[in-house]
Every structure is written in structure tokens, then in C-alpha cells.
Design a protein around this nucleic acid. Structure first.
Length: 425
RNA sequence: GGAGAGAUGGCUGAGUGGUCGAAAGCGCUCCCCUGCUAAGGGAGUAUACGUUAAUAGCGUAUCGAGGGUUCGAAUCCCUCUCUCUCCGCCA
């Protein structure tokens, strides 16, 4: 959520900033609504003050044994007037909140202009795409030839966008997750967490998936609905919900491995083949809670932590800054890490690292006590994949494939594979 | 799933219709006293919103959540949520 104070005081600038995303913020309509709210709130609080004062008087008069009838008569219609004002105010405040929850975050100034991914700017590259002296295959052909990747079985029980892995491939998937968790906890200072995979709506409002993007989520049909988490960002970031941290408790870094569930509504026809875009996938997530002044630096560090994983896995990648039209709803600045996929001859997203500044914190009331003033201020949240396990698996298959269709296990993973050097049929 | 108990400020814990945003204790902060240690005295110590130049005042709200009764609710009524205990079931 954008600071309502900023909305009020600088509505035109906010509208200009959000327009870079292609988002239209009707500043005049908002300010008109806000103006009404101000008038009504002042009036409502005045009436309440009046009521409180008279109730006190009546109490005191009664204690003295005086006749309270005249006092009661004087406030006869006060209750009705107050009820009317309160109802109207509640409605207005809900309308304002609806608008506020629907606004994306303000963009950082260094986010490049542009309407789609073609305008993302490359920050750096690591590794060189390998020259193959044989015909390269994509992960689907490779996995199926190994007899370890089965989309048919998956579709029979669950439909499209699911996969079944068996044998060494399933183990490689597990090994990747262990390797990533170990690296982040042992070397990058993250605390490992285990969190719920089903959450209620308020958690998703906190991180920004709701109310706007409900169609992207799976939802249970239980009496009280649960949502399946689309990313560990949701439960992990909500660890800070309704919390006031002391300044010396920050920064906090959390990591979690969870499955992620996405309806992929609106992505029909995209990446329908293979494991790139699934309803269910595994990811190791990185989350930071930092003091407001530290989030810009924290984004660089977090991105670096994800990059370490790809380097150790010997996977060529590049880092891009998402442009204004491609960046996510709640982010003020995002780096995507794109891994080279020989099967597609393209760099494809494998991690997305974002600074949300106070956008999520304000929604979930996550604060830190400012040591100067002693007052709580909204902390800053960041998150990034470190990295998506399914896509890392794809990248390993395609980048480390050998002429005979076997897969060379990267050095970093051998210990997690029981010493296995090669995955072969 | 069955039966019962409970939810109050950072913590413990009082408070069953009015002067209660809330006693007391602990903790914490500041000051005073005290030649180390220890003890004592005093003041302060929630959050949000509104108003405002203001992190100054002032106002409003908040005693699990929501609704109701009332001139007035932490206190009475209803619904819900959560926690704990016992029983049953269970990965």
C-alpha cells in the first residue's frame, strides 16, 4: 500500500509515477473522496466527544443523586446522528481502502521505462553458453529419454501443467533443494523456516496477491476458504505481520523451501510443453526484513545470494532490471535472474528479486522501532527466489547434457546425489 | 468429533454498567540520593487514526474479533475465532 499521506499530499506525482506502469490513478476522484472523509471524520469524532462528555456528566450527576432527566433529554437524538455519521464514514473509509489496496507500488526512479519485457535492461552476465558438438535436446526430450520424466502419467491424474519425476531425476530435484537451503543458511545468514502452505486471505492481502489477483490462486471449498500459497513469500513475509521489531533485531533473513501453486489463469498457450510453467512447483525463497534505509543495498545482496546458486551449478545467466511495464504489482524495483536454456536458445527467468520497501509492511503492519524517535515505522521487505527448483532442474538437464543423452551432475550437487556423477538411463 | 476453562497494556495480574486507556507488581527509560556491590526516592513507559508546520498540543478509537442492549460497556446479551485441559480419532 502506498502511504495514504503521500497519496493525499502528492496525488498528481503518484499518478505520474504509476502511469509509467500503464496504470491509471484517478487522483481527482481519490482526492474528492478523501475530502469527504476528512469532513465526515471530524464531524463523527466531534459527536463522539460530545456523547462521551455527556455520558460522563450523567454518571457524575447520578452519583450525586441528582435528577438526570434533563441531561438525558439533551442528548436524545445524539445517538441517531452519530450512528448515521459512523455508518457513512465506515462506507467511505472502505471505499478509500479499496482504492488504496488496488494501487501498485511506486516505482523506484532507476526502473527503466517500457511496456513489456523487451524493455528490461541487462545489468550483467555470468558464464558463457556452452558450444555443443552434438544436437542439443530440450529438457522434455532428455527427461523422457532417460525414462525419468512422465507428463502422460501426470496428466492422467491431474491434467495439464503437472509432471512426474522418477529415479535419479527426482533425486536431483531434491538434491537441488537441499543444496540451496544449505548454501543460504550456512553461507548467507538465512534462518531456515517451515511454514504453512495453506493461508487465509488476510495473509495474501498483506503480501499483495489479494484483493487484485485472486484468479491466479487456488482456493479450497471448505467452509472457511484457504488459499494454496503461490510462493513462500506469502507465509514467510507474513512472519512479520502485526509485529514491532526493535531496531537491533534487524536485518532478518529467512529462507524456506515450499511447493508453490499457481492457477496460471491467463497464460493459456504459453509454455504448455514441459516443466517451465506448472500448477505446482518447488522453490527455495529468500526474504529480508530490513530498516527502511537498508533496503536498496539489501536488494543487491539478496540478488547476489541467488546468483551464487547458479554459479555453483555452472549455469550461465544474466541479470536484468525489470522495466516499468513488466515489474510486479507490489515491487518498487526488481531484478530478474535469467538462466540460459540451450533447448530454447533463450535466457529464461529462474529468480525474481524484489524490493517492496514499505508496500507490504504497511499492509501487514510490520514495523521497526526507530532508534532516534522511539516510534515504530514500517520496515522494508524484500524477497527473491533462491532459486526455483523446477527451472533449475531444467537448466541442469539442458546445460549439462552429454552426447549420449546422459546428464553430468554439477560438482556442487554430487555430495547430495550420493556421489553420483552422471544421470543415465 | 465430545466435555470443560479461558482470551485485559512488554510480562504477571486486578477490575461485573459511569470519575477505566485501564489498579498493583515486574521489566524498561530518565532524574535524585548514595564513594565500589546492594538498597532507597521521584517521574515516565501502548498502538492507530484525525487535526496540525509539528515526532507539540488537542480529539477519537482500541481490554481476542464482529454485532446487540444502554445516555454510557473491559464489565450485560448474541455470533465467531483462537488458546488450554480431559476423552476419542489420527500422519
Amino acid at each position: 500500500m502506498i502511504d495514504p499521506r503521500i497519496l493525499r499530499q502528492s496525488a498528481a506525482e503518484v499518478a505520474r509515477n504509476l502511469a509509467r506502469r500503464g496504470f491509471t490513478f484517478d487522483a481527482d476522484a481519490y482526492l474528492a473522496l478523501e475530502d469527504k472523509r476528512k469532513t465526515l471524520q471530524v464531524e463523527t469524532e466531534r459527536l463522539r466527544g460530545e456523547r462521551n462528555a455527556s455520558a460522563k456528566q450523567i454518571g457524575q450527576a447520578k452519583a450525586r443523586g441528582e435528577d438526570v432527566e434533563p441531561l438525558l433529554a439533551a442528548v436524545e437524538d445524539l445517538g441517531d446522528r452519530l450512528d448515521g455519521c459512523e455508518a457513512e464514514l465506515a462506507e467511505l473509509q472502505q471505499s478509500l481502502r479499496d482504492v488504496e489496496l488496488g494501487l501498485p507500488n511506486l516505482l523506484s526512479d532507476d526502473v527503466p521505462d517500457g511496456s513489456d519485457e523487451s524493455a528490461n535492461t541487462e545489468v550483467r552476465r555470468w558464464g558463457k553458453p556452452r558450444e555443443f558438438e552434438f544436437e542439443v535436446h530440450d529438457h522434455i526430450d532428455l527427461g523422457q529419454a532417460l525414462g525419468m520424466l512422465d507428463f502422460d502419467a501426470a496428466s492422467r491424474m491431474s491434467g495439464a501443467r503437472f509432471s512426474v519425476m522418477t529415479g535419479a531425476l527426482a533425486r536431483l530435484h531434491r538434491a537441488l533443494i537441499q543444496f540451496m537451503l544449505d548454501t543460504h543458511t550456512a553461507e548467507h545468514g538465512y534462518a531456515e523456516t517451515y511454514v504453512p502452505y495453506l493461508v487465509q486471505s488476510q495473509a495474501l492481502v498483506g503480501t499483495g496477491q489479494l484483493p487484485k489477483f485472486e484468479e491466479d490462486l487456488f482456493k479450497t471449498e471448505t467452509e472457511r476458504p484457504y488459499y494454496l500459497i503461490p510462493t513462500a513469500e506469502v507465509p514467510v513475509t507474513n512472519l512479520a505481520m502485526d509485529t514491532i521489531f526493535e531496531a537491533d533485531e534487524l536485518p532478518l533473513r529467512y529462507t524456506a523451501h515450499t511447493p508453490c501453486f499457481r492457477s496460471e489463469a491467463g497464460s493459456h498457450g504459453q509454455d504448455t510443453r514441459g516443466m517451465i510453467r506448472q500448477h505446482q512447483f518447488e522453490k527455495v525463497e529468500l526474504v529480508h526484513f530490513v530498516k527502511p534505509a537498508d533496503s536498496i543495498q539489501a536488494l543487491e545482496e539478496l540478488t547476489g545470494h541467488a546468483e551464487v546458486i547458479l554459479r555453483r551449478l555452472e549455469l550461465p545467466y544474466r541479470v536484468v532490471t525489470l522495466c516499468a511495464g513488466d515489474i510486479g504489482f507490489g515491487s518498487t524495483k526488481t531484478y530478474d535472474i535469467e538462466v540460459w536454456l540451450p533447448g530454447q536458445q533463450k535466457y529464461r527467468e529462474i529468480s525474481s528479486c524484489s524490493n517492496y520497501n514499505d508496500f507490504q509492511a504497511r499492509r501487514m503492519k510490520a514495523r521497526v522501532r526507530d532508534p532516534e524517535t522511539g516510534k515504530p515505522v514500517y520496515l522494508h521487505t524484500l524477497n527473491g527466489s533462491g532459486v526455483a527448483a523446477g527451472r533449475a532442474l531444467i537448466a541442469i538437464l539442458e546445460n549439462h547434457q552429454q552426447a549420449d543423452g546422459s546428464i553430468a551432475v554439477p560438482e556442487a550437487l554430487k555430495a547430495y546425489m550420493g556421489g553420483l556423477e552422471t544421470i543415465a538411463a
